[in-house]
Design a protein around this nucleic acid. Structure first.
Lengths: 194, 194
DNA sequence: GGTGCAATTAGACCAGTCGTCTAGAGCCGA
DNA sequence: TCGGCTCTAGACGACTGGTCTAATTGCACC
């Protein structure tokens, strides 16, 4: 696999991410995608077997990069586990609240649409969210260990928080307003206190 | 407006609900919808100005019926406010966990997809969810008043619970598994206790 | 420079898209 | 019986959808 090959593939993926995060998966036709990436249609099927496989690759790429950032955040040195966890949610809130047409979190944007459309994409989303929850649970466990968090069931708390933030992002999207995220932030603080 | 008129219109809406709740809005073409409802295309455009307006009507109809059921549930006589509220979430859990391809909650299924697609549909979803949250807040306030619930900020709690359940439904959809809903149930009980 | 093979592209293909439009069927009051 | 509505029927147009095959390109090796 030449570097040019990898480049073009990644370029289609990056462009796809931008467009699909704004419009959804089914709504975006190959034409639009290819025109935006300035890649001829024929090439697309060289790099991806089908639109569905492309979508799956898009999600894999998304989760890889998301988890990389998440790991960097949750392993930041010189902070307590509590601080690291809160920074993650604070950042979620900030990212979601940003201006811009595209939905930053592909789980929110594509989850419901794609789950019934493609089993492969559903599984990719499921596994990705499980990995995210796993990292959060790890950080909560560390917080319990270093006593910066109260005695919590790490896994259950991680799941509950993640769910709540997903719902908050969805509601924020409907309202075009960050207040559901503020709501989630307040509830998060409450949950992570005594 | 003759009753036949209302019937056909409602019939298209009902069929549309079934199909769109399973596949999403963009994914379902008029042909599929019309074939399933056994209504000719000409009629469709008699009753609805466009596919988008149809989608909006679908959501309005959905929220109307949802709120009717919700009101029945939250005003059930002979139960404390706490019991009525818990019954709602219990029912949410039961409904979501049911077998069947379609997503029962259109907010979960269509929210993210439609918010960036159609301003009219987004606003309909926003207003509908606000009304739901309003009812929940009312019930929580009643629970605080009749002392079956602890002292809670009714509005904030309603929002937080609704968000969490939305996220839980999304995750349950990805996992094809009710455990996120059990999680939400546990967190709900915790929140509504002391 | 020439050869052979893989990587890449161009575009044909047709089923499907939404929406328009015309023609007429059915109904109802006068 | 007529006039005038609402509603149905479905052909049609202009276009987009994803897919695939055949042609072209680029490159390594001789």
């Amino acid at each position: 696999m030449s570097s040019r090959h990898a480049d073009t593939r990644q370029h289609i993926l990056d462009t796809g991410n931008r467009i699909i995060a704004a419009k959804g998966f089914s709504c975006v036709g190959l034409n639009e995608l290819l025109q935006a990436s300035e890649v001829p249609k024929g090439s697309f099927y060289h790099y991806f077997k089908s639109k569905e496989r492309f979508g799956q690759a898009l999600l894999e790429d998304y989760f890889d990069s998301y988890l990389r950032q998440l790991d960097a955040l949750l392993e930041a040195p010189g902070l307590t586990a509590r601080e690291r966890l809160l920074r993650y949610f604070q950042q979620w809130r900030a990212t979601q609240a940003e201006e811009g047409d595209e939905q930053k979190c592909l789980v929110v944007k594509l989850g419901a649409e794609v789950a019934d459309l493609s089993e492969a994409m559903r599984v990719t989303l499921r596994d990705g969210t499980e990995r995210i929850i796993g990292r959060l649970a790890g950080c909560i466990a560390a917080g319990v260990a270093d006593a910066t968090l109260p005695q919590l069931d790490a896994d259950a708390s991680a799941r509950m928080l993640y769910q709540m933030w997903l719902g908050a992002s969805l509601l924020a999207k409907l309202q075009r307003n960050a207040s559901p995220l503020d709501q989630a932030w307040a509830a998060t603080l409450q949950r992570l206190s005594a």
